[in-house]
Design a protein around this nucleic acid. Structure first.
Length: 493
RNA sequence: GCGGAAAUAGCUCAGUCGGUAGAGCAUCAGUUUCCCAAACUGAAGGCCGCGGGUUCGAAUCCCGUUUUCCGCUCCA
């Protein structure tokens, strides 16, 4: 990270705290590692990002519906999804090189070496011993095998190993008040499974026809080995994701469609195109046949914000196998041969965006420290150039002074407009200072009531980005502000 | 998890040789001004991250711990 970017990121974090966007969790008790709370303006901004996503995905697509599934799910689901196996890795550290490895991978490498050297018998005996140990989750045995077969660290070349430890990335808790006899359940490590297990419910009750999508916004939990970089990687995080069910064989068409559509969603907010890039996966997860990340250039480099994955029929097939319920769809449409497509397990295209990352992206991208000095008068301001639809506060109503009946007039306007929008009323301090305070939280418009208002019932609207003002009739305010912050501006583009 | 750095007011930071804590900005009350950080007066705000130790005495020295940042590592 370059020094200026480092500074920028630190300033954004300070700003986020100082102006009530993000606080460290449990701060008065020294905080809890990698857990953060959203403050008064942060919660508003986050809600607006959710609304933008939900409206874009659900409201704007007649064939996409939204659900809200529970965080607790049947433990078998995580066996079916592969998380119980995939999220449990036996790890071992080399004390000299300080490198960490997956114990089973070190042994796999050793087996490969034995085979290459023609020591087939040794390879086979190690393989079966390792499989046995992994199956029984016998960690000391894995360590013994590493010692016995003289596995060395590829970096340091030494055999100075720690014990093998299990890293479970899923949080677990006891289901049922009595610890004894209760079952262990996991906090979901992803929201996707809540959609897959409701596939039949939604399809049937919603009379959904393929292709169709199910969207969801919700919390997920991962016990990351290391969680850092502010709210970029947290142990408790929120996902906004949509699973789009398609006919087998048509998945690549829809993959391409969503890849493009999702980037458009980001760019519609006005972010510079060069801040984004696609990152195509070459190494695919076990369930995917194509995957791409949409990455944003944070001050500390390009990082994944959203993923678009072609998940094939892996998840639904797994649930069909583990639950014994048929996860099929009957497609009555006629194919090229004039026959119905018939029964099949749909293929799935997933779009999954990290809400907290999108929040951080929005903060970083809108944060600007402007130099406004003129002549010998030094001046500057910090402004969040948020899209009006995302801004926590849509407008501030400000009487120019505290007397001459201006506050009364301003409150009258405030009472009318607050029926539609989240507003702030403020009469303390000079007008310039109040403008700057609103800039700092990204309020796009300031409505100023002055002496002329009392004469002809006009007010000024001061625009955050240009700092310019226009005078409009107070009676027109509802329409004008309504138009300026309307979702139409964002969804229509 | 390893290594490095840091932690003092809401924010950014100063604090000398170990002698009971300061600035700027922000906040609150008031006077004055009235369209882009005005000025003045006053107030509030601190277990110097936490816990031990050394010392007559610790923000300061030592040990531990927590949290954060950076680099590794991890991220099916």
């Amino acid at each position: 990270m370059s020094k200026s970017n480092d500074e920028l990121f630190k300033n954004v974090i300070s700003h986020a705290k100082e102006y009530g966007f993000v606080f460290p969790s449990s701060e008065i008790y020294d905080g809890l590692s990698a857990v953060y709370d959203y403050g008064q303006f942060g919660a508003e901004l986050k809600n607006n990002i959710k609304t933008y996503w939900w409206k874009s995905m659900v409201q704007m697509h007649e064939n996409i519906v939204g659900i809200d599934s529970a965080i607790f799910m049947h433990p078998k689901i995580w066996k079916a999804s592969g998380h119980v196996d995939g999220f449990n890795d036996p790890m071992i550290d080399n004390k000299d090189s300080k490198k960490r490895y997956r114990a089973d991978q070190l042994l796999e490498d050793k087996i490969a070496k034995y085979e290459k050297d023609g020591k087939t018998a040794k390879a086979e005996s190690l393989q079966s011993a390792m499989d046995e140990a992994l199956k029984n989750e016998d960690l000391p045995k894995l360590k013994d095998l590493i010692v016995e077969h003289e596995v060395v660290c590829p970096v340091s070349g030494t055999r100075n190993w720690t014990d093998v430890r299990q890293f479970n990335l899923m949080f677990s808790t006891q289901f049922g008040a009595m610890a004894e006899g209760s079952d262990e359940v996991y906090l979901r490590p992803e929201t996707a499974q809540g959609i897959f297990v409701n596939f039949l419910n939604v399809q049937k009750t919603g009379r959904m026809k393929i292709p169709f999508g199910i969207a969801q916004i919700g919390k997920a939990f991962r016990n990351e080995v290391i969680a850092r970089q502010f709210i970029l990687r947290m142990r408790e995080f929120e996902q906004m994701e949509m699973q789009f069910f398609v006919r087998p064989g048509e998945e690549m068409k829809w993959y391409a469609y969503w890849k493009e559509a999702r980037l458009k969603w980001h760019l519609a907010l006005g972010t510079a195109t060069e801040k984004y890039r696609y990152h195509d996966h070459t190494k695919l997860a076990h369930y995917a046949n194509a995957a791409v990340d949409i990455e944003f250039e944070f001050p500390f480099g390009f990082k994944e914000v959203e993923g678009i994955h072609s998940r094939t029929d892996f998840d639904l097939s797994q649930h069909q196998e583990f639950s014994g319920k048929k996860m099929q769809y009957f497609d009555p449409e006629l194919n090229a041969d004039g026959k119905p497509y018939g029964n099949y397990i749909p293929y799935v295209i997933e779009t999954s965006i990290g809400l907290d990352r999108m929040f951080l992206l929005t903060l970083v991208n809108s944060f600007e420290e402007q130099e406004l000095s003129e002549g010998d008068k030094t001046d500057s301001r910090t402004v969040l150039r948020l899209h009006p639809c995302l801004a926590p506060v849509k407008a501030a109503v400000l009487p120019l002074t505290k007397k001459d009946g201006l506050p009364e007039k301003a409150k009258e306007i405030m009472d009318r407009l607050k029926l539609d929008h989240n507003l702030i009323y403020e009469e303390k301090d000079s007008i310039g200072k109040r403008y700057r305070r609103q800039d700092a939280i990204g309020t796009p418009f300031c409505i100023t009531v002055d002496h002329q208002t009392l004469e002809d019932n006009t007010v000024t609207i001061r625009h955050r980005d240009s700092m310019e003002q226009e005078r409009v009739p107070a009676s027109e305010l509802e329409r004008i502000i309504g138009d300026l912050v309307s979702w139409k501006n964002l969804l229509g583009s």
